[in-house]
C-alpha cells in the first residue's frame, strides 16, 4: 500500500522538520550508523530512486557526503556540474532546475549562492528539494549532523541515552551574520533544548536577533567559554573580512580565535566543533582542533548516516525501514 498520508516533501529549512522531525531523523541516523559498520555497508532502501546533486557553488565534503549517502542507499546519483551546464549560456536557475526535474529525478540536492534559492526551487520542481546550503540562509543537514554528533558525545560522556540536548550550553563563535551553518544550528540545537549563545565581533553578529531562539549574542568570548559545554567555531571567510571592516586575520585570531591559550579557559571537558573546512591558525589552532575534546572528525563521519536518514525520510517513506535495511546478514 502506498502511504496516502501527507509526506514531507523537502528539507529546505530546519523549520520544515520541527522538534519531532529532527528527533526522527536522529533516530533513523542511528540505524544507518549501524549499517555503516557492516562489512557490506549498503542497503537497497532507495533502489530505483535517483538523486541529483546540483551545486552552483564549490563544495567537496558536502557533495561527497550526499553522494556517498545516496549510493549506500542504492539510489542512482547524478552529479550536475554547473560550470559545464547551460547556466553558463545564460539559462535561468529555474529553467536549469526544471530541466533536471523533467528528467524524472526523485531528489535534487542543491547548493546555491543566493539566500532562499532552495525555498524557491521547492516551489518550482516536483522532485524533493534538499538544501545543501543556500547563500547565508540555511544548511539544514549540517545542523542535523551537528546535533547528532553532539548528542552522541553527551550520551557517551554521561553513559545514558539522552533523547535530546536539554540544557546543553552551546557557544557558536565567529561570523554569525553571514553563516547559513549558524542559522540552521540555532534552530536545530534550540529545538532540541540546547541553550545557544552567539559570540563574535559586533560587525559579524546578526544586525537583529529578534525572533532568534538564543540566550544571548555577545562579544565577550572568554566569559562565555568558561560556562559552555560545546564551543562551535565557524569558519572565517577571508572575503568577508574586508566587507566587515576587519583589519586583518591576525586581529580576528587574537580577539575571537580559539587559540591554545584561550582554549585553556574553556569549561573542563567542553567539546570543540567546526563545520570545516578549517582555517588552522585563524579561527582555531591545530592543537585545539585535533585535541581530545574535538568532535570535528565525528562531525564529518556522521555526515553520511545523517544524510542517509534525510534521503530515506524524503524518498523512502512508503517503504518500511526494517524491511529495506535487512539485518546485515543477507
Amino acid at each position: 500500500m502506498i502511504d496516502e498520508m501527507q509526506e514531507p516533501r523537502n528539507l529546505v529549512s530546519i523549520e520544515d522538520l520541527g522538534r519531532d522531525g529532527i528527533l526522527e531523523v536522529l533516530r533513523e541516523s542511528e540505524t544507518f550508523v549501524e549499517v555503516a559498520s557492516r562489512r557490506m555497508p549498503k542497503v537497497p532502501a532507495l533502489r530505483g530512486k535517483t538523486v541529483a546533486t546540483v551545486f552552483f557553488e564549490k563544495s567537496t565534503r558536502t557533495r561527497l557526503s550526499f553522494e556517498m549517502a545516496a549510493k549506500r542507499l542504492s539510489a542512482d546519483t547524478l552529479t550536475v556540474d554547473i560550470s559545464a551546464s547551460s547556466m553558463s549560456k545564460g539559462e535561468s536557475l529555474r529553467d536549469t532546475l526544471e530541466t533536471i526535474d523533467a528528467l524524472g529525478v526523485d531528489a535534487i540536492v542543491m547548493r546555491h549562492h543566493s539566500s532562499g534559492a532552495a525555498v524557491q526551487a521547492a516551489r518550482w520542481v516536483k522532485a524533493c528539494v534538499i538544501n545543501a546550503g543556500d547563500g547565508q540562509h540555511e544548511h539544514p543537514t549540517q545542523a542535523l549532523l551537528d546535533a547528532f554528533t553532539l548528542r552522541e558525545a553527551i550520551r557517551s560522556a554521561r553513559g545514558t541515552d539522552v533523547e535530546d540536548l536539554d540544557g546543553c550550553r552551546v557557544a557558536i563563535v565567529g561570523d554569525i551574520r553571514h553563516s547559513r551553518v549558524a542559522r540552521s544550528n540555532v534552530l536545530a540545537l534550540s529545538a532540541l533544548g540546547a541553550r545557544v549563545t552567539l559570540v563574535g565581533p559586533s560587525e559579524l553578529l546578526p544586525v537583529s536577533v529578534e525572533g532568534w531562539p538564543i540566550e544571548a549574542a555577545t562579544e565577550e568570548l572568554d566569559a562565555v567559554l568558561a560556562s559552555t559545554d560545546a564551543c562551535y567555531v565557524l569558519r572565517i571567510q577571508h572575503e568577508r573580512m574586508a566587507d566587515a571592516g576587519l583589519s586583518d586575520l591576525r586581529e580576528y585570531r587574537r580577539s575571537f580565535g580559539l587559540t591554545v591559550e584561550r582554549a585553556r579557559g574553556l569549561a573542563p571537558g567542553a567539546w570543540i566543533m567546526h563545520p570545516g573546512p578549517l582555517n588552522r591558525g585563524v579561527e582555531i589552532d591545530s592543537q585545539v582542533a585535533d585535541g581530545p575534546n574535538s568532535l570535528i572528525r565525528a562531525q564529518v563521519r556522521n555526515g553520511v548516516p545523517v544524510r542517509m536518514a534525510v534521503l530515506f525520510r524524503l524518498l523512502g517513506r512508503s517503504r518500511d525501514i526494517e524491511e529495506v535495511i535487512g539485518d546485515g546478514r543477507g
Binding site: 539566500s115 532562499g116 547563500g135 547565508q136 551574520r177 553571514h178 544586525v207 537583529s208 529578534e210 525572533g211
Partner: peptide, 15 residues
Amino acid sequence: HEGRWSSLLGIPGQP
C-alpha cells in the same frame, strides 16, 4: 530592509 527579517532570512540588508 536591514533588520529583523534580513537577519532571519540571511539576505544582505540596507539600513
